[in-house]
Design a binder for these strands. Structure first.
Lengths: 358, 358
DNA sequence: CCGGTTTAGCAAACCGGTTTAGGCTAGATT
DNA sequence: AATCTAGCCTAAACCGGTTTGCTAAACCGG
């Protein structure tokens, strides 16, 4: 007698074994009231003894829902997960999703195509983060007909979304430095990842840049485009950014950095250059990720409610997934400057900085 | 004339519109060689004009695969994502998965039950991390018949898995401190999360504890169980752990911490207590997460190849998902001590520490 | 002109469930 | 006794695709 690889038992096997119809087996699991109690429990016993579990894919197909929400990003997942910003964001997403019993499915470009990855994904709805409204594939994605909430994309009309007041936060950061007496200010911006989108004015970084600029100009400091450097949004990125700026002869007393990860790199570069923070150089980050309060000196930064952003996105998404009748909800969360120890009064005389560098 | 909500077009709609059978439509997408070229392209045109995309769930059902791998953890996802260890691990997982065109699906306890979450998940295989072999649901999970690779669980026979040399790494850390002259050593261990598993001897932390112990004893330092404190595996956790130990009257000159996140908290607590690191207090972490080299002072820690662990787990998983004939592969990765600046010679006289504290 | 091979496309079965619309029986009602 | 109702269960249709035979026509060399 051959030992066959044991097929996974299906509903028909249970039905046959229990001497009932498939319908009865299905009812035993999903709708036991429609069966005599003893029949239902007998069916369940048989199912257990066979090790039967309803096939999740088949269920999805008939019920037309997957109980899964997708998190979509235009970047490779392998660059997302160890980014503390995404960590906190995903934490919020997970919190809201778990509460409602939804699982999480991550969608990233498949063979370079987001739309393709999207059409392969079995989700009830999608939270898109870091996807700019002008992304080439955004139309295809919307055309997939899956409920979609966009995060940090300048809102399309009719498109639910969550964003924050990037511009206001950046303006506060810039004004803070100016009020401390800084005049020579370096701006460190985020370089778009390889599949190089231009630095679009509608993107997050565009908004922050506008905020910096208006903050400077509001206080009478001229905005100098040559004092803007660009690097990858990582600790390393910030590190090389300051070194490069310094090497190019810039001698700022204050730095406005568009992400905390980069700001941490800037802090490190400052130490390497022999600059004391904040005595010689003031640094302001953006995002207020968890570690920012633990680095030394603790980082002055623009706080945004990252976890809440993730939670809200999921809440909004589920409200459209579950009842179709909603208006597209657009949520805007506040930012605020948190002054810690990485900023201080500008050094009196420029020489002071020069001397240290030498 | 009523405006009906437009049904998603199905294969039958395309077939009717193009005047062919469903089979032909299917071929046009998956097996165009079996059709005359002009027929195939006509079908694809019709499909495009209708906005037709094959329904991913239906595909999964017939093809019996989902092109998705699951990442399973016994903890809530909302505690996972902003943990830098998981961040790096997931990065490795994502890297290997993306290379093979697999998406990622995260599975965490559903209504408290991992097995239930598991049976709902549509994945081709699962990487389980932080799931101890003695977890109450591990049998049900294995019984689901889904290929499974366990990470950091003491290997079950017949069960593919990836682990690291926790014990060896911990021993090296302990010996390092002893060689620097430390005799009063505090051990900070990880408290199991709420659904409180005991601190099992087979768990990761059990292995590390054994390593510390054997490292101490090998160098003739007695292991004192009262010098082991327990706290959550977070920066906060480490912070309160040292404060609590200090408050209880312990006066270690060296601390062995079972995770870098906690070690960073310990560093901070030391600063709050007025202790200089490493002059007054030496601190050794475990894991070597990315930030550890950026905190100040840079953290001496036991390195483990976290990303590679994730990658390897997925590689092994896919090798069994794709061809069933493999032996269960068990991989063990090395750890090594990385000495940075948070450890140094023990202070000469105990008084030195006492004085500082005062 | 004939048997044999391609080629192009189709009908039907299948994946593994859920759901609709009844059917049958037994007890209650008229 | 005939009709109604309630309770329990089922056959068949359905979700939306893929795959397996099979057939009819075109092609081919002899």
């Amino acid at each position: 007698m051959e030992e066959r690889t044991p097929r996974r038992p299906r509903i028909a096997d249970v039905a046959r074994e229990a001497g009932v119809s498939k319908t009865a087996v299905s009812f035993a699991f999903n709708n036991p009231d429609r069966l005599a109690p003893e029949t239902a429990s007998r069916i369940r016993d048989v199912a257990d003894s066979l090790g039967y579990r309803p096939h999740p894919v088949a269920r999805m197909l008939t019920q037309r829902q997957t109980h899964t929400i997708g998190v979509l990003t235009p970047q490779a997942l392998s660059v997302i997960f160890s980014n503390p910003f995404f960590g906190a964001f995903n934490e919020g997403v997970a919190l809201a999703a778990e509460q409602e019993g939804y699982a999480l499915h991550f969608i990233s470009p498949l063979h370079g195509s987001l739309a393709q990855a999207m059409s392969q994904a079995t989700v009830d709805g999608v939270v898109a983060v870091g996807l700019s409204a002008s992304h080439p594939e955004v139309e295809q994605i919307r055309a997939a007909g899956v409920p979609l909430v966009m995060v940090d994309s300048s809102a399309l009309p009719d498109q639910p979304g969550v964003e924050i007041d990037d511009e206001g936060g950046a303006r506060a950061a810039a004004e803070h430095l100016v009020m401390l007496g800084h005049r020579d200010i370096l701006i460190v911006s985020v370089e778009p990842p390889p599949p190089a989108l231009e630095l679009e004015p509608e993107g997050v970084m565009g908004r922050r840049l506008r905020g910096y600029r208006s903050g400077l100009e509001a206080k009478g400091v001229e905005f100098d485009p040559r004092a803007v450097v660009v690097a990858p949004a990582s600790i390393e990125g910030g590190l090389v950014a300051l070194h490069r700026a310094w090497g190019a002869g810039l001698r700022p007393t204050g730095v406005l950095v568009m992400s905390d990860a980069m700001a941490i790199g800037v802090l490190r570069a400052a130490r390497e250059l022999g600059l004391r923070v904040p005595e010689d150089l003031s640094v302001v980050g953006f995002d207020d990720i968890d570690v920012s309060q633990h680095v030394s000196p603790p980082l002055t930064t623009v706080h945004q409610p990252i976890r809440r952003k993730g939670e809200s996105a999921v809440r909004i998404l589920l409200s459209v997934v579950q009842r179709r009748d909603r208006d597209p909800e657009q949520l805007r969360l506040e930012t605020r400057l948190i002054v810690r120890a990485s900023t201080g009064p500008a050094p009196r005389r420029r020489q002071e900085v020069e001397r240290v560098r030498g």
